[in-house]
């Protein structure tokens, strides 16, 4: 399955375009930066890897965009694509989880909140997982957990390093306790990777919180983060409500989290590919 299939016209294309517009990139020619309000020519923004040329605000990327930015051309081969979430609790809030899954699949052109596969970066093989926030806020349910566990197991088999890009609000509540168990599953799989001295690089992007940060995202041999990403265990609103105090400036942002010892490298998206290559080469020389 080639990556181009993702861009094929589908029934929901109309809807997709609409959602993308709301999420980050409008279909029109100009886009306003969310942070500095600068009007940016869409083409310029894309050429700049979706980083605002004026204030360096990092727009959210879809998994497909990330793959193009990070991997060698046409090297990405997706695995376990068609694992689909199931509404096993018959969970209904404003709509049923079953409907939500269906809608999210159409909206995002993805089967769930992560895309996994084998790829090459600077000609070095990697097992790559990329979360996509546009699928139910990147929440981790059974599918995300299973895909990550299988990715790691494949990496063990191929003796390949693992890179996972997180972008997730945390566990998927619609799957109840089963989403919590994915934290155990993914972390246990990473333990095996570590036992076998295979490298794992975690790249946290905006946002990485809750069950995602409290499992695989924090367990990298190297923890990287894009600038100004929200990274933490509890969400800022929950903390504010609990302690009834204002939070310090920059709290739970990449730079702040790095200052507190949880992140090795805060890396601008425009240097990310090069830095990942450096790490992969360093790990590769044994």
């Amino acid at each position: 399955m080639s990556i181009h299939n993702w861009f094929k016209r589908k029934k929901a294309q109309q809807e997709t375009a609409y959602v993308r517009e709301r999420l980050d990139i409008p279909g029109n020619l100009w886009v306003k930066c969310y942070k500095c309000n600068q009007a940016i020519f869409t083409k310029d923004l894309e050429d700049n890897l979706k980083v605002c040329p004026k204030c360096s605000y990092h727009f959210k990327l879809t998994a497909a965009e990330r793959i193009i930015q990070i991997t060698d051309p046409n090297s990405f081969k997706e695995i376990n694509q068609k694992i689909v979430s199931k509404d096993f609790l018959n969970f209904t809030d404003s709509k049923s989880y079953a409907q939500r899954i269906e809608k999210s699949i159409l909206k995002s052109n993805l089967y769930d909140a992560i895309v996994t596969g084998l790829a090459k970066i600077s000609n070095l093989p990697v097992a790559l997982g990329i979360m996509d926030f546009s699928f139910m806020g990147g929440s981790m349910g059974s599918v995300v957990g299973e895909k990550i566990a299988r990715l790691i197991e494949l990496a063990l088999e191929k003796k390949a390093p693992v890179i996972i890009f997180s972008s997730s609000g945390g566990a998927r509540m619609q799957e109840g306790i089963m989403s919590l168990m994915q934290m155990a599953k993914t972390s246990a799989a990473l333990g095996r990777l570590r036992e076998n001295s295979l490298p794992y690089i975690s790249v946290m992007t905006d946002p990485t919180t809750g069950g995602t940060s409290a499992s695989f995202a924090m367990l990298g041999d190297v923890n990287m983060a894009e600038p100004d990403a929200l990274i933490g265990f509890a969400g800022p609103r929950v903390i504010e409500q609990t302690i009834r105090q204002k939070l310090p400036p920059g709290f739970q942002r990449s730079e702040y989290v790095q200052e507190h010892g949880m992140i090795d490298v805060v890396c601008d998206r425009r240097q990310l590919r090069e830095n990942l290559s450096k790490f992969l080469r360093w790990f590769d020389e044994r």
């Binding site: 333990g191 409290a214 499992s215 367990l219 990274i231 265990f233 929950v238 949880m262």
Partner: peptide, 26 residues
Amino acid sequence: GAYPGIGAEERGQAEAIAKNLREMAE
């Protein structure tokens, strides 16, 4: 639940739990 406080975040609540999960498995 694990405490959602400023200090807890600064000292790495997420990392502490994540690490326990990995280590408990082994």
